[in-house]
Amino acid sequence: RSRTTFTAEQLEELEKAFERTHYPDIYTREELAQRTKLTEARVQVWFSNRRARWRK
């Protein structure tokens, strides 16, 4: 699998969701996946990476 490139629109959606919760449940992730046209797995990994960046 090659590296996922996120569009500005996708990042906006993901960042907005991250402001609400750092640990979205499966329903939230599924909804985000549909809205951003990404897979739920990509959304999950993005949140994991985003939390790592947030901790630094």
Rank of each mutant, 00 (worst) to 15 (best):
T7I: 03
L11C: 00
L11I: 04
E13S: 08
Y27T: 13
K16F: 03
R29K: 02
Y27Q: 07
Y27M: 09
E40L: 08
T39S: 13
T7D: 06
E13N: 04
E9G: 09
T4Y: 07
T28F: 12
A33C: 04
K16G: 09
R29I: 15
L14S: 01
T5F: 13
V45G: 10
L32S: 00
R29V: 14
T39K: 03
F6E: 12
E15D: 02
W46A: 01
Q34Y: 10
W54R: 09
P24N: 00
R53N: 08
E12N: 13
N49V: 07
V43D: 00
R3L: 09
T39C: 07
T5H: 06
E9T: 08
E12M: 12
E9I: 05
A17C: 15
R55I: 09
W54D: 14
K16C: 11
E19I: 05
L14D: 00
A41M: 09
T39E: 07
Q34H: 14
T4Q: 05
A8N: 12
R51P: 02
T28P: 00
T4E: 12
E19F: 06
R29L: 14
T39P: 09
K16N: 12
N49D: 12
R50T: 03
T28L: 14
R20D: 07
L38Q: 04
E9W: 10
Y23N: 11
H22G: 02
R3V: 14
Q34A: 08
Q44N: 15
V43W: 05
T21N: 05
R53I: 15
S2L: 11
K37S: 13
R42Q: 14
R3G: 14
L14K: 00
T28C: 10
A41D: 15
E13M: 10
Q10F: 02
E30G: 13
R1W: 12
T7N: 06
F47R: 01
Q34L: 11
Y27S: 15
T5A: 10
F18R: 01
E13W: 05
V43R: 02
R53W: 07
H22S: 05
E19T: 11
R3C: 12
Q10M: 05
W46T: 01
E15P: 00
Y23E: 08
R50L: 00
L11W: 04
T4C: 07
R20Q: 15
E30N: 14
N49T: 09
P24F: 01
W46L: 01
R50M: 10
T21I: 05
Q34N: 09
W46D: 00
R35M: 09
A17K: 00
R3E: 13
